[in-house]
Design a protein around this nucleic acid. Structure first.
Lengths: 219, 219
DNA sequence: CCACATTGCAACCGATCGGTACAGAACCTG
DNA sequence: CAGGTTCTGTACCGATCGGTTGCAATGTGG
C-alpha cells in the first residue's frame, strides 16, 4: 500500500518498487542475519542506493522490522492456515510438514529469518533479538490456544498439558530451522517429524478419530 | 597445557591465565555471537589487551574456535556421558534433561554457544557458521551410532529408523537452545521434553524394560 | 648486575560500519 | 516553458571494526 500512496503526483517518480526492494532485503537478512548484512550488501541487492533506502525505510533497524513483517505475511503465511485444521493432530501435523517444506524450499535461503536474523546480537542491537523472540512467541501462543480449544472439543485426551504440547511443537520447529540452515535436506527433516508425531499420537483420546500410523508410511 | 608450555623460563611472565581468559571469552561469544562480540568487548572481559590476545590466540576467528573447543570440553561435557546410559530410552532421556538444565543454568548465559555463536554470518565469516554446524553434527552422529547399537541390542523396536530418531532428539535439543536463548525457563522446557519422551516410548520393544510413564509425574 | 627474552600498553593502521549533505535529474502543475 | 517538488547518485561524515607497531615495563639466566 505505502509503495504508491506516498507519491502525490509531484516530483520525480520513484525508480523502484518498494515491495520488491523489501523482498530482496529479506533474502539478504535471511542469509546473513541482521549484523551480517551490511548496508552495502542490502543496497546492492535491492538495486537502490543508501539515501533512497534511508528516505523510504528510515534506518537499518526499521528496514529489518519491515522485512520481518513482510516475511511473516508471505513466507510464514502458511502457519496461520494450519490452525484451521479440524483436529489437534491435523493442526500439528500440517504445521510441522509445512514448516519443513518452507524451511527447505529451493527458491529461497534455507532456514527461518526469525531465527537466523539475530538470535544474539551486539549489545547495541539487543532490540533485534528481542523483536524476533517476541515475534516467535506469538505463534506459540496461538497454537497453545488452538490446542486448548481442541482439548475442550475432545480431540485431545482430557487433562493434556496443551501449553507444553504447543511448546514442544514450536521448539521442534525452531530446531528444524537450525538444522535446515545448516543444510539438512527435506526428507531428513520430515523423518524427524515422523518421530515427533508419534509423541502427539500419545495424547489422542482413546477412540482416536485419526490414524496417525499412516504418516510413517508416506515418508 | 599450552598456557604454560610457551613459557621458556626467560622473559617477563604472563600476567593472565590463558584458560581463564578463554572462559571469559566464551561468555562474550555466548551472549553476543561471533559478529556481535567486538575485540574491544572481548579484551575488556578477558582483562587483557589486543596485542596479547593476538599473540596468544592468533586472530578473532582462532580465538572463537578455541573458545568453542573449550566450551565443548566444559559446558557440553555432559553430553558424552549420556551416551553411556544402558538403554536407548535412558540415553535420550538423560541427554534431553541434562540439556535443558545446561541451557537454563543460572551461572552462565542462557542457550548454547554453538547456535547463538553464529547461525548465519556475513559472507566473509561464513567459515564460522560452517565450523559450528560441523561441530553440532558430531554429536548427532555419535547419538545415531549409539541408537543403532541399541536397536541391535534389542532395547529399540526392530526396524526403528535410528538415524531419524537421533535427528529428532538433536533437533529438539537445538530448538530448546533457541527457546532458552529467548528466555524460556527450565520447567517450561522440561515440560516440552516430557512430550518428546512420549514419542521415544513409542519406539520401545513390546516388553519395554523401562517405565517411561514415570517421567510425566516427576515434572 | 647486566644482557636478554617476553609481555603490557598506548597509539595507530586501512577498511568498513551506519548514516548524510549536496547537487543535479526527472516529473507534475500552472 | 517556468516553478516547485521529489528522487537519484556521488562523495563524504565520525565512529568503530579487526589487526599491528614501537616501546617501556618486568621478569629470568649468566
Amino acid at each position: 500500500m505505502s509503495s504508491t500512496a506516498s507519491y502525490r503526483g509531484r516530483g520525480r517518480p520513484r525508480a523502484f518498487a518498494e515491495d520488491e526492494a523489501l523482498d530482496r532485503a529479506i533474502r539478504v537478512f535471511w542469509e546473513h542475519g541482521y549484523e551480517g548484512a551490511s548496508l552495502s550488501d542490502l543496497t546492492a541487492a535491492m538495486g537502490i542506493n543508501k539515501p533512497s533506502l534511508y528516505i523510504v525505510f528510515g534506518s537499518k533497524e526499521e528496514l529489518f522490522k519491515r522485512a520481518v513483517a513482510r516475511y511473516r505475511d508471505t513466507y510464514v503465511a502458511y502457519a496461520a492456515g494450519t490452525l484451521e485444521e479440524p483436529t489437534a493432530y491435523a493442526v500439528i501435523e500440517s504445521y510441522l510438514r509445512a514448516a519443513v517444506d518452507a524451511l527447505t524450499g529451493s527458491d529461497h535461503p534455507p532456514g527461518c529469518l526469525t531465527i537466523q536474523g539475530g538470535l544474539s546480537c551486539a549489545p547495541s542491537n539487543s532490540g533485534i533479538s528481542e523483536h524476533l523472540a517476541g515475534f516467535r512467541a506469538v505463534f506459540e501462543g496461538e497454537l497453545a490456544q488452538r490446542l486448548a480449544r481442541a482439548e475442550k472439543e475432545g480431540d485431545l485426551a482430557p487433562g493434556t498439558d496443551t501449553a507444553a504440547l504447543a511448546r514442544f511443537v514450536v521448539t521442534l520447529g525452531q530446531g528444524l530451522a537450525v538444522h535446515a540452515a545448516a543444510g539438512a535436506g527435506r526428507e531428513d527433516l520430515q523423518a524427524a517429524v515422523d518421530v515427533a508425531l508419534r509423541a502427539v499420537a500419545a495424547y489422542l483420546p482413546s477412540g482416536s478419530p485419526v490414524t496417525p500410523a499412516a504418516e510413517t508410511a508416506e515418508a
